[in-house]
Design a binder for these strands. Structure first.
Length: 447
DNA sequence: GAGGAACACTGGATAATGGA
DNA sequence: TCCATTATCCAGTGTTCCTC
């Protein structure tokens, strides 16, 4: 959409009512987009009876406790907050993070450098920017950075009061980052880190941020809570898992506009709320990381997790090679109750684990449960597995043949419910297996 | 040793997703 | 709106194990 289209859309929008006849006659001729926006803003204020009541713009120094810091690259505004041990973000104490183990971090990130994990070596980073596009036109105006100093959690917020102060905040962040080994973000691999690297490059400055071992919390969060929550945004996760309720926050999508308004008006009233937003995000990183890692470390001993969470955890453990924990989670999921469409998958996953461990009785039980579920919606899987068991483990070809015959009978009955291609493929596979088994029953070679 | 079944692994295609 | 990352699915290939 080019500028002309945007202007057209604006003129077609409800804001059109704020324009007078004279303004509309000049449409598309003399007024620049900026002038038009000013006009809309002025008329909007008139409509609201606010014209003439504009109070003096409030400077950031008046609204946010902080200081102006001098750097070789100029000035910027800095705020520091210290959170004492036991400070709770929502329902989670920040010091819970001290219980996070290197093994959990290692497994969840797949990065062996997390073997060296120490909470005191980690920084939690979140940026506020002028947009999402991530190109050279997106500017970072605030960087929040938190870390543990002993049991205290210390938060720094670096704010560029205009574009010229970006280099100063980048410089301060870089000097503060140097002692750390681990970086924790939410969607930082995709958003914060590439953007920071671009800004450092454009400023002809170096950064070690990309060399740190990076724990991006978005990926384990999605793996664990994607099924239960409507989405896996940080705001949803913190509300649902940490019990955080934000008051007076600025929604993320409004932040660029708040900054642009601040640059134009020099009124920092809303920017103070961006400081709050950024601080909340950083605290949520701490709470979320603690929650994920402790859940991974001790899935059955903390929190009130529901069936879907245990199902997702089962998959996570299974994928990460921890079959025993995986099977316990699947069982817990089935006991706690999960949506009907997940039940067959849980039994299948359980049967895979039992089969691999050669726990045949348990595997057979899982396949039998699947057969019962298959009365409602046909599934070939349990029949095939039971037939394989009798053929390959017990060498009872007659029993295996009976199972395949039952499966064939069942798919013939279920023909109407199945897609023609799917039905034909199932029938082919079963008849092939049946031919082979019948030859084996007769003691003949099948190849 | 040949042949087949099952399984593990890999790569490609596709879809979903979140950041401000 | 963009787009890197991840998950998922599927097909193809290689390996292992077992039977005869």
């Amino acid at each position: 959409m080019d500028l002309k289209d945007k202007l057209k859309r604006l003129l077609d929008s409800p804001y059109r009512d704020f324009l007078g006849e004279d303004d509309l006659q000049n449409e598309g001729e003399l007024l620049t987009l900026r002038q038009r926006l000013e006009l809309i803003y002025r008329r909007s204020r008139q409509e609201q009876g606010l014209a003439g009541k504009v109070s003096a713009p409030k400077r950031i120094e008046e609204l946010v406790q902080g200081r102006v810091e001098e750097t070789p690259y100029g000035q910027c505004f800095v705020r520091e907050i210290d959170y004492s041990p036991g400070y709770c973000h929502g329902e989670v104490s920040l010091s819970t993070l001290l219980e996070v183990t290197p093994e959990s971090c290692c497994k969840l990130t797949g990065d062996e450098r997390f073997n060296q994990w120490q909470h005191s070596k980690a920084i939690f980073v979140d940026t506020e920017t002028t947009g999402l596009s991530g190109g050279t036109g997106t500017f970072i105006f605030m960087i929040g950075l938190g870390y543990f100093r002993g049991e205290h959690f210390h938060l720094w917020q670096f704010f560029a009061r205009d574009y010229s102060e970006e280099m100063a905040i980048l410089h301060l962040v870089e000097s503060l980052t140097k002692p750390f080994q681990f970086l924790v973000t939410f969607n930082g691999k995709q958003f914060d880190l590439p953007l920071l690297q671009t800004r450092y490059r454009l400023s002809r400055m170096d950064t070690i941020l990309h060399q740190l071992s990076h724990f991006d919390l978005i990926y384990p969060s999605r793996r664990i809570w994607r099924l239960r929550l409507e989405n896996c945004r940080l705001s949803t996760l913190e509300r649902s898992l940490l019990g955080v309720v934000r008051r007076g926050d600025v929604p993320g999508e409004e932040i660029p506009q708040v900054y642009f308004d601040y640059l134009r008006s020099q009124n920092a009233t809303l920017i103070a709320r961006v400081f709050y937003h950024n601080a909340q995000d950083i605290l949520s990183l701490v709470g979320l990381m603690a929650t994920i890692c402790l859940l991974y470390h001790k899935p059955f001993s903390q929190g009130e997790w529901c069936g879907e969470d245990f199902y997702s955890l089962g998959r996570l453990f299974h994928q990460l090679g921890e079959a025993e924990k995986g099977s316990r989670c699947y069982l817990q999921a089935l006991n706690s109750g999960i949506p009907a469409h997940l039940v067959p998958s849980a039994f299948k996953a359980l049967s895979f684990i039992y089969k691999k461990n050669r726990e045949w009785d348990k595997a057979l039980k899982a396949w039998d449960d699947l057969l019962v579920l298959g009365e409602r919606e046909f599934d070939l899987f349990p029949y095939e597995e039971i037939a394989k068991y009798w053929e390959h483990q017990r060498h009872d070809y007659t029993r295996a043949t009976e199972v395949v015959e039952r499966a064939l009978l069942h798919i013939h009955r279920a023909k109407e419910e199945l897609l023609p291609d799917r039905y034909a493929a199932m029938e082919r596979a079963l008849e092939y297996r049946l031919r082979r088994l019948r030859l084996r029953v007769q003691g003949k070679r099948w190849y």
